[in-house]
């Protein structure tokens, strides 16, 4: 055996030994990185998402963010030209590239639930209204799908549930106040949340049939905490009437908002 061949063999043995040894160093490090949310947890995903994620990782190497940004610019161009379906389709790919970037999910939701729905011309003819409402609700539902997708990757992000609450309270026809209240409650329970989601949950509960007492208790507690915005007072006034709260227990303020 020549010296060169012998050295080649030694190099090969070094690489194989190192390769085998480092697997046991790298695997816990990789698991730790998933636990700390540097990468999405592919193990907990559904098959479709998992294939998408793993494929993207392998195929695009370290350039996922760059590709995502280029696609975001393309989506913007589609949006600018009023091609909402293309823009939304682009965003379904972008969110696979950067699943932990809330902004991408949010943008996809905006394009679908707000911009696309605004592009539907309200029909003068009453016969066409049902079709209009169906198309409108489909677009809002796709927006909600973006937020539900985001919730899989960012389960503790209050903004996701806040947006879902808003879609159910303001966008769907007719509004689903009970679901909106539930989402606002989830937003209020998230870490680093904003205080207004707590009272938003109360407003939505007040509109949800059968939940008036719960709404009253929540808003009364808000009021007692010295948070006395116009909407809080207005809803309390309405609930006091509806629930026949004794005069002595009612709040002294009367809202000008009807």
């Amino acid at each position: 055996m020549s010296r060169h061949t012998r050295n080649l063999l030694i190099a090969f043995v070094i690489l194989i030994s190192f390769g085998y040894g480092r697997m046991y160093l790298e695997e816990p490090m990789a698991k730790d990185m998933v636990a700390k949310h540097y990468w999405p947890d592919t193990m907990s995903m559904e098959t479709r998402d998992k294939v998408g994620q793993l494929g993207m990782t392998a195929a695009l190497g370290g350039f996922r963010s760059l590709v995502a940004s280029i696609m975001a610019v393309q989506a913007f161009t589609h949006w600018d030209a009023g091609r909402f379906d293309q823009a939304i389709a682009q965003y379904w790919v972008i969110v696979q590239l950067q699943p932990r970037a809330f902004f991408n999910w949010f943008q996809g939701m905006q394009y679908s639930a707000y911009d696309k729905t605004h592009s539907f011309k309200f029909p003068e003819d009453e016969k066409q209204r049902a079709d209009w409402v169906r198309k409108y609700n489909e677009a809002v539902a796709e927006g909600a799908d973006f937020m539900l997708g985001a919730a899989k990757y960012l389960p503790d992000d209050y903004r996701i549930y806040g947006q879902l609450g808003m879609l159910h309270a303001q966008k769907f026809i007719p509004e689903d106040w009970c679901k909106a209240a539930e989402y606002y409650r989830m937003a209020a329970a998230c870490p680093d949340t904003k205080p207004y989601y707590h009272r938003f949950s109360g407003y939505a509960l007040a509109e949800c049939p059968g939940k008036e007492q719960e709404a009253y208790d929540l808003l009364r507690a808000t009021y007692d905490d010295n948070i006395r915005f116009g909407s809080v007072i207005s809803y309390l006034n309405k609930l006091e009437e509806k629930l026949n709260i004794p005069q002595a227990d009612r709040i002294p303020e009367r809202s000008k908002i009807k």
Binding site: G19, Y20, A30, D32, Y38, A101
Partner: peptide
Amino acid sequence: AIIFPDFHLYDIVDAVVSGEAVATTLLLQ
């Protein structure tokens, strides 16, 4: 796994751009 290096270990750009904080221990590792 034995032959090729793991470059995915260095992919923290997405997390950083999304606002995740990076631990010093991770950088040391």
